[in-house]
Deep mutational scan, measured.
Amino acid sequence: MFKRLMMVALLVIAPLSAATAADQTNPYKLMDEAAQKTFDRLKNEQPQIRANPDYLRTIVDQELLPYVQVKYAGALVLGQYYKSATPAQREAYFAAFREYLKQAYGQALAMYHGQTYQIAPEQPLGDKTIVPIRVTIIDPNGRPPVRLDFQWRKNSQTGNWQAYDMIAEGVSMITTKQNEWGTLLRTKGIDGLTAQLKSISQQKITLEEKK
C-alpha cells in the first residue's frame, strides 16, 4: 500500500525546468507551479508516452532531478554507511541512485490517469530550513484521497528550496528505503546496493492501464 502511495505522490513532485522555475526561495510556489507544469506535460505528451513509456525517463531527467536534492536524499538512505564509504564508492552510488530515480519516478508518472491535487495554504517560513507541505491527491475514479507531506529543505548556501522526502501515513519514503535496503547494505555494503540500483534502473517502464 505504501509503495502505491509513494508512486501516486511522485506525480506531483516533478519540479519546473530552470527556464520557467518559480521563486526558488518559496517552496509553496515551487510546489504549486511544479504540480501544474507536471500535470500539463503528462496530459499533453501522452502520444509520446504511450508510444514509448521510457520517454518518461527524459521527462524526469529534464523536469524533476535538477530540483530534487538527489545527493542529500541518497546520503540519508545510506545512513551510517555513508561515512564509511570511499569517495569513489559515493560517486558510483550517487550515479546509480540518480539512474534509479529516473526509472522509479518514471514508473510513478506512468500512473497518471487524470488525477488532480490540492496544496495546503502557504504558511510563514520564518527562519525554518525544513518545511512540510501537505498535498491532497484526488483520484477521478473514486479512490479515497491521498494526503501527503512533502519535505522541502532550504539550501544554506543559495537560499533555494528543494524537495527531498515524502511522508505518507506517518511513514517517510527515506525511512522506507532504509528499511528495504538495510539488509543488503549490511551483507554486501554500498557496492552491493550500487549494483542492485544499476540493475533496477535497467527495467523498462510500463504503463498502468486505467481501472
Rank of each mutant, 00 (worst) to 15 (best):
K3V: 02
R4E: 11
L5C: 05
M6N: 00
M6D: 01
M6Y: 05
M7A: 02
V8L: 13
V8P: 01
V8C: 15
A9D: 02
L10A: 05
L10W: 12
L11V: 05
V12S: 04
V12Q: 02
I13G: 04
A14I: 11
A14H: 06
P15Y: 05
L16P: 08
A18F: 14
A18H: 13
A19R: 02
A19S: 10
T20H: 08
A21S: 12
A21K: 12
A21L: 08
A22P: 09
D23T: 10
D23I: 12
D23V: 09
D23Q: 07
Q24P: 15
Q24C: 12
N26R: 05
N26M: 09
P27E: 04
P27L: 06
Y28Q: 08
K29S: 15
K29A: 14
L30V: 05
M31G: 02
M31L: 05
M31H: 06
M31I: 05
D32G: 10
D32Q: 10
E33M: 06
E33T: 04
E33C: 08
Q36R: 09
T38A: 06
T38F: 09
F39V: 02
F39Y: 02
R41C: 09
R41P: 04
R41D: 03
R41S: 07
K43W: 07
K43L: 07
E45V: 12
Q46N: 09
Q46T: 06
Q46I: 11
Q46K: 06
P47E: 07
P47D: 10
P47F: 08
Q48M: 11
Q48F: 06
I49P: 04
I49A: 09
I49D: 05
R50M: 10
R50D: 08
A51G: 12
N52C: 05
N52A: 12
P53L: 06
P53Y: 15
P53T: 10
P53Q: 12
D54H: 08
Y55G: 07
L56M: 15
L56K: 04
R57D: 10
R57W: 10
T58V: 15
T58A: 09
I59Q: 06
I59H: 02
V60Y: 03
V60D: 03
V60C: 08
Q62S: 12
Q62P: 04
Q62H: 11
E63W: 01
L64W: 06
L64T: 06
L65G: 07
P66M: 06
V68A: 03
V68C: 11
Q69S: 14
Q69H: 11
Q69R: 02
V70S: 14
V70K: 08
V70D: 10
K71A: 04
K71M: 03
K71V: 03
Y72T: 01
A73I: 03
A73V: 02
G74F: 00
G74T: 01
A75D: 00
A75E: 02
A75W: 01
L76Y: 03
L76K: 01
V77T: 08
L78E: 00
G79I: 00
Q80G: 07
Q80P: 13
Y81S: 10
Y81I: 05
Y82K: 00
Y82L: 05
K83Y: 01
K83C: 02
K83L: 04
S84Y: 13
A85N: 05
A88D: 13
R90N: 06
R90A: 04
E91F: 08
E91R: 08
E91A: 14
A92E: 15
A92F: 08
Y93L: 05
F94N: 09
F94Y: 09
A96T: 12
F97W: 09
R98N: 13
E99C: 09
Y100V: 14
Y100L: 11
L101C: 15
L101Q: 14
L101T: 15
K102V: 14
K102S: 14
A104N: 02
A104I: 05
G106I: 04
G106R: 01
Q107P: 05
Q107R: 06
A108T: 11
L109S: 00
L109A: 00
L109N: 13
A110E: 14
M111N: 05
Y112K: 02
Y112L: 03
Y112W: 04
H113E: 10
H113A: 01
Q115R: 01
T116W: 11
Y117V: 14
Q118I: 13
I119C: 08
A120V: 14
A120K: 12
P121N: 06
Q123A: 03
Q123K: 14
P124R: 13
L125I: 07
L125W: 14
T129C: 05
T129D: 06
I130C: 00
I130A: 00
I130T: 02
P132N: 07
P132Q: 05
I133N: 05
I133G: 02
R134S: 11
R134W: 02
T136H: 13
I137Y: 13
I137M: 12
I138Y: 14
I138F: 13
I138C: 14
I138E: 08
D139F: 13
D139S: 06
P140D: 15
G142E: 09
P145S: 04
V146H: 11
V146Y: 11
R147V: 02
R147T: 03
R147H: 01
R147M: 03
R147C: 01
L148P: 04
L148N: 07
D149P: 03
F150R: 04
F150D: 00
Q151I: 04
W152M: 02
R153W: 00
R153M: 01
Q157V: 05
Q157H: 08
Q157W: 08
T158K: 06
G159Y: 12
N160V: 09
N160H: 09
W161N: 06
W161K: 04
Q162M: 09
A163F: 12
M166I: 01
M166C: 01
A168R: 11
E169C: 11
E169P: 04
E169T: 04
E169D: 04
G170Q: 11
G170A: 00
V171W: 01
S172I: 02
I174D: 12
I174E: 06
I174M: 10
I174G: 11
T175Q: 07
T176K: 01
Q178W: 07
E180H: 04
W181A: 04
W181L: 15
W181E: 14
T183P: 05
T183K: 09
K188L: 07
K188T: 09
K188Y: 08
K188G: 09
G189D: 08
G189A: 01
I190T: 09
I190F: 14
G192K: 11
G192Y: 13
G192N: 12
G192Q: 11
L193T: 13
T194H: 10
T194K: 12
T194E: 05
A195G: 13
A195V: 14
A195T: 13
Q196G: 12
Q196P: 11
S201M: 15
Q202Y: 15
Q202T: 10
Q202I: 12
Q203K: 14
Q203T: 11
K204P: 14
K204R: 13
I205E: 13
I205A: 02
L207E: 13
E208F: 13
E209P: 13
K210I: 11
K210P: 14
K210L: 09
K210A: 13
K211T: 12
K211R: 11
